[in-house]
Nucleic acid binder design. Structure first.
Length: 356
DNA sequence: GCCCCACAAAGCACGACAGA
DNA sequence: TCTGTCGTGCTTTGTGGGGC
């Protein structure tokens, strides 16, 4: 039984509206559904919300209050059943899948799109589907061709991995897919992979630092970047500004900067109010800079770039780690000699090899 | 019978944001 | 800085058809 069908059953018995949590508890207690996730009430709530949103007046559910749902027409649902048996919203087998009218498979279409439009960069599966349809390669009568496309790509990758073959597609996370033939190989690729691991570990080390240690590290980075007259203001309660300094460019341009440092967890992105707070703490002729170990929400980025206000520069955790490594802070650079054949010593003509 | 293809629903994790 | 709510979308799963 699906979550929605189980919810109908519970609401029908209750004959009143119920909170999402109560619906979930009663569904589980009645054995109508066995949740496998960590937040079953979130799943139930999301299911009912999406059903109402998708089907509108045709949805069997109606939201009566915050996180509280009821049946839209409980009498109709109940009377439609015989012998006190509930009538599920959907019964019977699923409709037969629509017929694909083209000779090209989804994966072949995806390969063509990536080769033609990818420019050696991963594309989102929705864009791939859109371009495949626009290009006339893909003609599907299904309702969600993009879901089919993604499922096909993932299945194709897993199938080839299972066989021990090199998959033709590569997943890049968040729905992005590229061609494996674009992946660089060899020593340079391995070095980049290693450095990626070091970036990750350095970021973890930043998170383990005390606020004081972190600010000292940022001050060291600013000094390496060309800042002068660096002064820690954290303990002086200076409106949230942690470090002040002057960015000197070529001993000609001098820009006063007020820096706020935020050592936040990866998931806690900096929000717009923080940007507003920094802007409000700026002194005369000062520019603002926020440095964080996490990232910035889109709202914070918009706020920082407001054209009619003092611009605030933003540095997220990824940029911070890259800069630290560029300036050899927190890492040790290992130099090694890599030799390649000199083209100038190559023979001018290719001499065919003999049979021996 | 097995494998591949195509599709859609289910279920879950995650992100944004507001409020505490 | 954490928690709860709401919304989005990624991933898995089940089903059926077709080819070999």
């Amino acid at each position: 039984m699906s979550v929605k069908t189980a919810a109908i059953e519970v609401l029908r018995k209750a004959q009143s509206s119920l909170h999402a949590k109560a619906i979930t508890e009663q569904i589980v207690a009645a054995g109508l559904w066995q949740p496998s996730g960590k937040t079953p009430e979130a799943t139930v709530s999301a299911q009912l919300y999406s059903d109402i949103k998708k089907n509108g007046d045709k949805s069997p559910f109606v939201k009566v209050a915050h996180q509280t749902f009821a049946l839209r027409e409980p009498v109709c649902v109940a009377t439609a059943a015989t012998k006190d048996e509930p009538v599920p919203v959907k019964v019977g087998k699923k409709p037969s899948p629509p017929v694909v009218k083209t000779g090209l498979s989804f994966t072949t279409c995806a390969q063509k799109v990536l080769e033609q439009f990818g420019n050696k960069k991963p594309m989102h599966y929705r864009v791939i589907t859109e371009k495949a349809i626009a290009g006339g390669w893909l003609q599907s009568s299904g309702k969600t061709p993009e879901a089919t496309m993604y499922a096909q790509l993932i299945t194709d990758i897993k199938r080839q991995q299972k066989r021990g073959e090199r998959p033709r597609f590569v997943q890049h996370g968040r729905g992005y897919v590229g061609l494996s033939q674009w992946m660089r190989q060899g020593l340079a690729f391995q070095i980049e992979q290693h450095n990626e691991q070091i970036r990750k570990k350095l970021r973890e080390r930043l998170m383990a630092m005390t606020p004081g240690e972190f600010e000292e590290l940022v001050a060291e980075l600013l000094a390496e970047m060309g800042f002068d007259m660096i002064e820690a203001t954290r303990l002086s309660g200076d409106g949230g500004i942690d470090v002040r300094g002057t960015l000197v460019v070529g001993d000609v341009v001098r820009i006063k900067m007020a820096v706020q440092v935020k050592k936040w967890k990866l998931k806690n992105n900096i929000q717009a109010p923080v940007v507003q707070q920094v802007r409000g703490s700026l002194g005369a002729h000062e520019h603002g800079l926020i440095i964080t170990t996490s990232d910035f929400s889109p709202g914070a980025a918009r706020e920082a770039a407001q054209a009619d206000k003092t611009p605030i520069a933003l540095m997220n955790g990824e940029q911070l780690v890259v800069l630290l490594m560029e300036h050899d802070i927190g890492v040790r650079r290992i130099a090694s000699d890599l030799f390649e054949l000199d083209d100038e010593t190559a023979p001018s003509e290719v001499v065919p090899l003999g049979d021996d």
